[in-house]
Simulated scan of single mutants.
Amino acid sequence: MKKKIIILTVLAIILLGGGAGGTYYFAMASKYINTEDAKIAGDLRAIGTPGAGKLIEWNYKEGDSFKKGDILGMVETTPARGNTPAILQEIIAVEEGTIIQFNGVKDQMVSPTSAIAMSANLDKLYVTANLQETEIADAKIGNKVTIKVDAYPDAVITGHVERLGLGTNSSFSLLSSSNASGNFTKVIQRIPVKISIDSYQGKRLVPGLNATVKIEK
């Protein structure tokens, strides 16, 4: 008899716990859109040269910031006419940013068709999150967002939905999604959402960091 009471008590606890968990999950699902398919992002800019020639000067290393109009480097270009002296051309920043990658080598030949560096404004980063097509109707511009960045698990960063994508990720793919075999399997599509960041909370955020977002409905 005593053993039966213990078993019934354990079952009751399990059922109550499961019910409470289910209630909590339903409440969260009804109030928020959650996804781990999110990353810190920024507007990357490729920095090229004004002409083909030799890179004789580069003034910024990776991690250095610059202002619009700053001289990033210098290229020595040689005109087609052999007797004409070489011309020095400045590589001028068209907007402020930070060098996040540098591929050039001093005194080697460069071309305006190839980027020698990549930059981004690290003060204007945002989050890109991919929501399922069944969730996008609940996402509205201006909705509050809680952002958790994997690199800083203890930090709670807030933001707002800034823009909803106008197409699914697959619609922008270079590969055709047409099916010539006649077989069809429906796949849930994902739509990109841009989320502004209210404050970095003193954390060093960089493009590409994984994040989890919770968007209020």
Score class of each variant (00 low, 15 high):
residue 129 A to K: 00
residue 6 I to L: 15
residue 85 P to K: 12
residue 87 I to G: 12
residue 208 G to M: 07
residue 132 Q to D: 15
residue 34 N to E: 11
residue 62 E to P: 09
residue 7 I to C: 11
residue 76 E to A: 11
residue 89 Q to G: 05
residue 93 A to N: 12
residue 54 K to R: 14
residue 142 G to S: 07
residue 76 E to L: 09
residue 1 M to C: 11
residue 162 E to P: 03
residue 53 G to A: 04
residue 177 S to E: 15
residue 106 K to W: 08
residue 100 I to D: 12
residue 72 L to E: 07
residue 127 V to S: 01
residue 51 G to E: 08
residue 35 T to C: 04
residue 89 Q to H: 05
residue 132 Q to P: 00
residue 30 S to W: 06
residue 168 T to C: 05
residue 102 F to Y: 15
residue 157 I to V: 12
residue 164 L to D: 09
residue 200 Y to V: 13
residue 186 K to D: 15
residue 217 K to V: 06
residue 7 I to A: 14
residue 84 T to S: 09
residue 163 R to Y: 10
residue 117 A to G: 06
residue 24 Y to M: 09
residue 83 N to P: 02
residue 25 Y to R: 10
residue 79 P to K: 10
residue 136 I to C: 08
residue 210 N to W: 03
residue 4 K to V: 14
residue 57 E to W: 02
residue 26 F to A: 08
residue 159 G to F: 04
residue 179 N to I: 05
residue 61 K to P: 07
residue 156 V to M: 08
residue 173 S to R: 12
residue 212 T to I: 04
residue 23 T to K: 06
residue 150 D to P: 00
residue 107 D to Y: 06
residue 117 A to C: 04
residue 63 G to E: 11
residue 191 I to W: 00
residue 45 R to P: 00
residue 197 I to Q: 06
residue 100 I to F: 05
residue 73 G to Y: 04
residue 1 M to L: 12
residue 58 W to A: 05
residue 8 L to H: 10
residue 106 K to Y: 04
residue 25 Y to W: 00
residue 139 A to W: 08
residue 215 I to A: 03
residue 60 Y to G: 08
residue 211 A to V: 00
residue 67 K to L: 10
residue 30 S to Y: 08
residue 194 K to A: 01
residue 51 G to P: 03
residue 40 I to N: 05
residue 120 A to K: 01
residue 83 N to A: 10
residue 18 G to N: 13
residue 9 T to A: 15
residue 84 T to V: 13
residue 51 G to V: 06
residue 116 I to C: 08
residue 180 A to C: 01
residue 32 Y to N: 07
residue 132 Q to M: 09
residue 122 L to W: 04
residue 164 L to Q: 08
residue 13 I to L: 15
residue 13 I to E: 03
residue 188 I to E: 14
residue 17 G to A: 09
residue 16 L to V: 14
residue 216 E to D: 10
residue 203 K to F: 01
residue 22 G to R: 03
residue 98 T to L: 02
residue 47 I to A: 02
residue 66 F to H: 07
residue 124 K to T: 04
residue 119 S to Y: 05
residue 11 L to M: 12
residue 174 L to A: 15
residue 88 L to W: 03
residue 103 N to F: 12
residue 183 N to W: 09
residue 130 N to M: 09
residue 80 A to F: 09
residue 156 V to Q: 14
residue 182 G to I: 10
residue 32 Y to Q: 09
residue 188 I to V: 15
residue 71 I to M: 12
residue 115 A to C: 06
residue 94 V to K: 01
residue 30 S to R: 04
residue 135 E to C: 04
residue 125 L to P: 12
residue 36 E to P: 03
residue 114 S to W: 00
residue 127 V to A: 00
residue 12 A to I: 12
residue 126 Y to R: 00
residue 27 A to Q: 07
residue 179 N to L: 10
residue 15 L to Q: 01
residue 178 S to P: 05
residue 6 I to W: 13
residue 78 T to E: 15
residue 212 T to R: 06
residue 36 E to W: 00
residue 195 I to E: 00
residue 25 Y to V: 01
residue 147 I to F: 03
residue 189 Q to L: 07
residue 1 M to Y: 10
residue 187 V to I: 12
residue 190 R to G: 05
residue 180 A to Q: 15
residue 7 I to E: 11
residue 109 M to K: 14
residue 170 S to E: 11
residue 199 S to Y: 02
residue 126 Y to V: 03
residue 37 D to R: 14
residue 142 G to M: 01
residue 214 K to E: 06
residue 130 N to L: 10
residue 157 I to H: 02
residue 196 S to T: 04
residue 129 A to R: 02
residue 208 G to C: 06
residue 105 V to H: 13
residue 149 V to M: 07
residue 193 V to N: 02
residue 50 P to R: 00
residue 179 N to E: 14
residue 65 S to F: 02
